Simulated assay, not measured.
Amino acid sequence: MIIFSIIVGTFIGVFSTSILRWYLKRNVHFDSFGGREIIKIILSTLVASAIFGLLNIFFGYIYIEFGPELTETEIHMFEGYDKIMVQVLNSVFLVGAWTITYLVIKLLLKLNQNRIERLELNTSLKQAQLNTLKGQINPHFMFNSLNNIRGLMLEDVDKSREMLTKLSEIIRYSLTKNNINDIPVREELEVVDNYIDLSKIQFEDRLEFVKQVEEDTLDLRIPPMIIQLLIENASKHGISNLKNGGRILLAIFKKGDDLYIEVKNTGKLKISEDSTQLGLKNIEQRLKLLYADRASFKLEEISDEVMAQIKIPLACKSER
């Protein structure tokens, strides 16, 4: 009887709790734990307890009816085996204790996982900041700008001095804003204007720049350099490849609880094989680190234009 009880008890316990564990893993979401999840846990525990109790009654009946003759001690031990409420209450206690233990272990594992993810994010953030610095200070842009300003000095000294000031502002901005998570839109637009003015020395009339920025977005905060990187990408991979030049359109607007930043440029979506796409990867990585899955970035070709779009949530602050 002892051997039978151990084997059957182990089977019933494993069977009942396996069903419960399967249900909890599929239907209880610990990331959004709330009242609904608590109700699911209670109801599933009661169902598992009922299964546990009914199986005890069933195997007890099998042993009494078809097993060896019971001794007085065994008869005393089997008293009440057929009382459903007694079995269910005992089962609720045992299965409930198992459920609490399971949830505690699950919580500890979740906390440990979150800690590991935070450490990985911190490491990734440091690397992203380094990549940001690398992506911001474009040596080709600096060389071209200095070369163009040198040529401009022969024609207009005052204009060349102004362009040198704008270039120094871009470099200063890149270095000082590297460790800052967000800045006002209006501050980012100042750098964009400086970049466009420097680019127009090279492109002259081949570059048309249009801004469509809603007034109520100017004080909203965004990660630094993301607009400038989009404009630089549109200029370098779009306008510079067109003989007759083209247009870059910058639109910033709100839609619902999100801020949208769109940069459209004339041309086709062609990325050269030797391109590292560091700027685009930079944007995606920083958005992921700061907003998780609540922000998005996409690059696509629409008709004869290439559109880069960034969506940033307004309802919540960045996580860093």
Score class of each variant (00 low, 15 high):
Ser145Lys: 07
Ser272Val: 14
Ala251Val: 13
Val47Arg: 02
Gly35His: 04
Gln212Gly: 08
Lys166Cys: 05
Thr17Tyr: 04
Lys177Tyr: 10
Ile2Glu: 09
Asp274Phe: 11
Gly279Gln: 09
Gln228Ile: 12
Leu229Asp: 12
His76Gly: 10
Asn179Pro: 02
Asn194Ser: 05
Ser174Val: 11
Ile196Gln: 05
Gly13Pro: 06
Val185Gln: 03
Leu20Trp: 02
Lys288Asp: 03
Glu79Pro: 02
Gly96Asp: 14
Leu111Ile: 14
Asp258Phe: 00
Arg286Phe: 00
Thr276Pro: 10
Arg172Cys: 01
Phe52Trp: 14
Ser199Gly: 10
Met153Tyr: 01
Lys134Tyr: 03
Glu188Asp: 06
Arg320Val: 14
Lys264Arg: 11
Val263Gln: 04
Leu220Asp: 14
Arg118Phe: 09
Val88Trp: 11
Leu249Pro: 04
Lys134Gly: 03
Arg247Ile: 09
Lys254Phe: 05
Thr99Tyr: 00
Glu190Ser: 07
Glu305Val: 03
Ser275Lys: 04
Leu43Asn: 00
Arg118Ile: 12
Asp82Asn: 15
Met77Glu: 12
Thr276Tyr: 07
Asp31Lys: 15
Leu43Thr: 00
Val263Ser: 08
Gln228Thr: 15
Val192Asn: 04
Asn181Arg: 02
Gln309Ile: 14
Ile137Ser: 08
Ala251Asp: 15
Ile248Arg: 08
Ala48Tyr: 00
Arg206Tyr: 13
Val185Gly: 02
Ala97His: 07
Asn148Tyr: 02
Leu133Asn: 07
Lys159Thr: 12
Glu187Lys: 07
Ile227Cys: 06
Ile6Ala: 08
Gly80Trp: 04
Thr266Pro: 02
Gly267Lys: 06
Val213Thr: 08
Leu119Cys: 03
Ser174Phe: 11
Ser296His: 05
Leu107Met: 14
Asn178Gln: 15
Leu289Ser: 08
Val192Gln: 02
Gly151Asn: 13
Asn122Asp: 12
Gln309Met: 07
Phe253Lys: 08
Asn178Trp: 08
Ile227Thr: 10
Glu305Arg: 10
Glu117Met: 06
Ala295Leu: 05
Leu218Met: 10
Leu54Thr: 07
Ala315Arg: 10
Asn147Arg: 10
Leu70Met: 01
Thr99Ile: 05
Leu94Lys: 11
Leu108Asn: 13
Lys110Asn: 13
Gln136Thr: 11
Met307Asp: 06
Glu305Ala: 06
His29Tyr: 07
Ile302Thr: 12
Val185Lys: 04
Ile180Leu: 14
Leu89Ala: 12
Asp216Ser: 11
Glu284Arg: 14
Asn114Ser: 11
Gly256Thr: 07
Leu287Gln: 05
Leu229Tyr: 09
Met153Trp: 01
Met163Trp: 00
Glu117Asn: 08
Lys177Phe: 07
Thr123Leu: 01
Lys298Arg: 09
